[in-house]
Amino acid sequence: MISRKATRIELNIEDIEEYEQLKREQTQEYNQMLRMNAQTTPKEGMNIEKKLPLVNTSNPSNTNTKSPSTAQRIGFD
């Protein structure tokens, strides 16, 4: 008798939620650490990146180089 192939669980777009969840947890942990130890030395910061790799450690939107939006330029914002 010819056999049927075993059911294979395929990765799908919903599995990204697993990544988002881990990222949220790491961000929460990171924020907690920041609150507890407000003055973090650069060396410690490096360790955090290794320990909590999914955390956003920089935010390009907060940098000064960002040009103001049209609303900001016309004083509407």
């Binding site: 990765l11 799908n12 777009i13 599995d15 990204i16 990544y19 990146e49 790799p53 999914l54 956003n56 450690t57 920089s58 935010n59 390009p60």
Partner: peptide, 20 residues
């Protein structure tokens, strides 16, 4: 596929910009 493309973008952003 969509799944891999999405994750590749995320990995590239985190790896290069440290922000995603």
């Amino acid at each position: 596929d969509n799944f891999t493309n999405t994750l590749l973008n995320k990995a590239l952003s985190l790896s290069l910009l440290k922000f995603e």
